[in-house]
Design a binder for these strands. Structure first.
Length: 158
DNA sequence: GCGACAG
DNA sequence: ATCTTGTCGC
């Protein structure tokens, strides 16, 4: 499947479900209680990105973690960057991502001191935004939380 | 002239 | 995503 913006789940979900199934058989003790996904959840043009898609199919709580903003409901990179810049945020602070319709799509997390660019958290399945942000915040040694960062660096070698 | 857009 | 350049912290 090619990568098409807005349709990432159709490319990635079959592989991820296969890996979960493999874990259930081979390493049941390590089967995850929560998934932090390298991609958005409800912060998505149809409110249902990769993290949502995977969460529902696997029936596991999921958090979407985007490294770039997927433009939706009037939210733009420029606008978010401006808000983040003038908010004088400390590491761990968030600014809510509210679209022009008033919907809360997620939160931009200033995840690491001295970082220019925030990461974009949204709720996937069976989790609140507050909990999602708290979990991600706990995992941030660098800008990108460790579970996503380690998988990302591995994937870069492939 | 062209057209915002996760990975 | 990938690549290149420049700056900064360890």
């Amino acid at each position: 499947m090619p990568y098409i913006a807005g349709f990432l789940a159709f490319r990635e979900t079959p592989v991820l479900l296969g890996l979960l199934q493999k874990m259930a058989v081979k390493e049941p003790a390590l089967y995850p209680q929560l998934l932090m996904v390298d991609g958005n959840a409800i912060l998505h043009p149809r409110g249902f990105g990769l993290a949502s898609h995977l969460g529902v199919l696997a029936d596991i709580p999921t958090i979407g973690v985007g490294k770039n903003l997927h433009h939706v409901d009037g939210l733009t990179n420029l606008e978010v960057r401006n808000v983040v810049a003038k908010s004088n945020l400390q590491a761990g602070d968030v600014v809510p991502l509210i679209g022009s319709t008033g919907q809360v799509w997620g939160a931009a997390l200033h995840s690491h001191e001295g970082c220019q660019k925030p990461i974009f958290i949204s709720i996937g399945h069976r989790i609140s935004l507050d909990t999602a942000v708290a979990v991600v915040r706990c995992c941030c040694l660098h800008r990108v939380p460790e579970p996503v960062r380690q998988v990302f660096s591995f994937s870069q070698l492939q």
